[in-house]
């Protein structure tokens, strides 16, 4: 019974990881840019919500309003990122990594200066701050609902809409697409904006679970990187599978082999890469 609860909790955690990581994988897939500021963007969403509503429970409407505000902030920061990254288009991953790492330090230190360096957390909104049957936090169910909704919307946009078809075409053959009169730059920009907005949204969604503190940006960045690398980079399907797998590793896995808990996360990633050197859904190069 308790293992079932643990597995269910792994789904909640996996849903949060999906929202956190999917933007990273989108930007990597379309722009071939490794955005190491992704963790700082997550942190920006969380701290923005903290600065607006503080640590006391608010109504669900206010909470959703703040989440939307974070999305707007993510769009703005995404605009900044796409301007910053443009001169580096052909410079390779490592230069982009250095740039986005610098930007991540600037953003996260700025947030800690504006708020403070203390430990903070977001409270779950009223109505979701209790427990179901006194033994499972209602907010985590809400995270699953929100995660599935966001995943569904992402899949729908990418697989079923014209916009999604254009994005996929831009991945496969940008020259061809440009030749047929489509503004590829605009497609790229919208993917960066969407990816960054998902990161800041994840910051609000995860606020009540992962808290807010110095060093959070690196911690969630590493989690997101593990999720997308296990999934095979650059595919939304891979990110979803990676997120669910890592969610279970971090819950069911550590419950089953607690003595290996400290090694488990990285050992699983290493094992996946030995088995499939380009991730579970990765195309071998």
């Amino acid at each position: 019974m308790s293992l079932l609860v643990t597995a269910f909790d792994g789904i909640a955690f996996g849903c949060l990881l999906f929202v956190l990581a999917v933007g990273l994988t989108m930007i990597f897939g379309l722009l071939d840019v490794l955005n190491l500021a992704h963790g700082a963007l997550y942190m920006a969403g969380g701290y923005l919500a903290f600065l607006v509503i503080g640590e006391v429970p608010t109504s669900l409407a206010v909470f959703i309003g703040v989440a939307l505000l974070a999305v707007v902030a993510g769009l703005v920061l995404g605009g900044g990122l796409s301007v910053a990254i443009r001169p580096l288009t052909r410079r390779g991953h490592l230069d982009q990594a250095l740039l986005t790492m610098g930007l991540a330090i600037l953003l996260s230190e700025f947030l800690l200066q504006v708020a403070d360096r203390g430990f903070h957390s977001l409270a779950a909104p009223r109505g979701l701050d209790g427990s179901i049957a006194g033994s499972y936090p209602a907010y985590r169910v809400a995270v699953i609902v929100a995660g599935l909704a966001i995943a569904g919307a992402t899949f729908w946009i990418f697989e079923r809409t014209r916009a999604g078809a254009l994005v996929r075409a831009a991945v496969d053959d940008p020259e061809m697409l440009a030749a047929s009169g489509v503004n590829v730059r605009r497609i790229r920009l919208s993917v960066v904006l969407a990816g960054c907005a998902l990161a800041t949204l994840a910051g609000v969604l995860g606020g009540p679970l992962l808290n807010l503190r110095a060093g959070l940006d690196t911690e969630v960045l590493v989690l997101a990187l593990i999720v997308i690398v296990v999934g095979g980079l650059a595919s939304i399907r891979g990110a979803a599978l990676g997120a669910l797998l890592i969610g279970q590793v971090q819950t069911l896995g550590v419950a089953l082999v607690p003595e290996l808990a400290a090694y488990l996360l990285f050992a699983v990633m290493a094992a996946v890469l030995l088995w499939r050197p380009a991730g579970l859904f990765g195309r071998a190069t």
């Binding site: 609860v5 643990t6 909790d9 971090q250 550590v254 419950a255 607690p258 400290a262």
Partner: peptide, 18 residues
């Protein structure tokens, strides 16, 4: 005695259940 990985535990449910 239940020990949890330091600085990496985002969720105590799997440990509390032990």
């Amino acid at each position: 005695q239940i020990l949890t990985p330091f600085g990496k535990t985002q969720n105590f449910q799997p440990y509390l259940s032990q």
